[in-house]
Design a protein around this nucleic acid. Sequence first.
DNA 1: ATCCTTAATAGTAATCATTATCGTTATTGT
DNA 2: ACAATAACGATAATGATTACTATTAAGGAT
Lengths: 135, 135
Amino acid sequence: MVKRFSAKRNMIREALLELDHPTASDVYDYIRKEYPNISLGTVYRNLSEMAEDGEILRLSMSNSPDRFDFNTEDHYHVVCTECGHILDTGEGLDAKLLSDLDRAVEASTGLFVKSRYLLFYGICRECMKKDSGKE
Amino acid sequence: MVKRFSAKRNMIREALLELDHPTASDVYDYIRKEYPNISLGTVYRNLSEMAEDGEILRLSMSNSPDRFDFNTEDHYHVVCTECGHILDTGEGLDAKLLSDLDRAVEASTGLFVKSRYLLFYGICRECMKKDSGKE
DNA sequence: ATCCTTAATAGTAATCATTATCGTTATTGT
DNA sequence: ACAATAACGATAATGATTACTATTAAGGAT
């Protein structure tokens, strides 16, 4: 199936650059401000295809809609449990640590590790400041 | 809200012991074989409450329904991308490796890590044997 | 520049997982 | 036994996502 040029797909790319780990509906809302005639289905279809093609990443968070990331470099995500903000780890998350972890998992399970999905939860800097006053 | 005895909840506990990381509907089907009058809503409600209470774990896999784990010990999960089988890591997944990883993430993001969700993908032993014949 | 094939779209229906509602049932303390 | 209300079954509702269908529009061939 040969890919054709699509203005909508480019708008979606632009939205991904502009927004921070947006959901499909974030992207939809963003584009709709300028071009109210885009369809939510189009957003979902394009995001899914782009993720399928490896052009973007799909992040599945528990209990909330999937999010998408234009950054396909090897990196991971952290979620602030206070404000919900999602941050990227720098892409050089110590490769040795990760491969040691893979080896440990392999030793423990017998499964040959091909990839991993890591998500960290905690308190971000901003919320730490905000919270230090109260409690 | 004081918890009362519930025969259905005990059936759900039993199903969790019997089945391997089941979804809510796996549990429902399992119990229904013996007690066809159980309601799917009851299964969902109990599983959610038990997970909320920390009696069991809720695992959210991407693109598939949540799964539940009676084992609340500190451990992680690996998924075989061939057969879909979910395996537990032994619970002693080198605490030092994990805390080193936390520190690396903290250094990279500024977020103070409180917990993590780790999922590994790969090929399990059985599928490795099966596959070694072909290709 | 026009024609053809079919990718892409808008609009909407359908599906899937999950939660909420509500009238009834059943546990447990009095 | 009785009253208060947790738990239940049945089913409606919600939210996220995918599927369907008729229409539009890339872009290569004529």
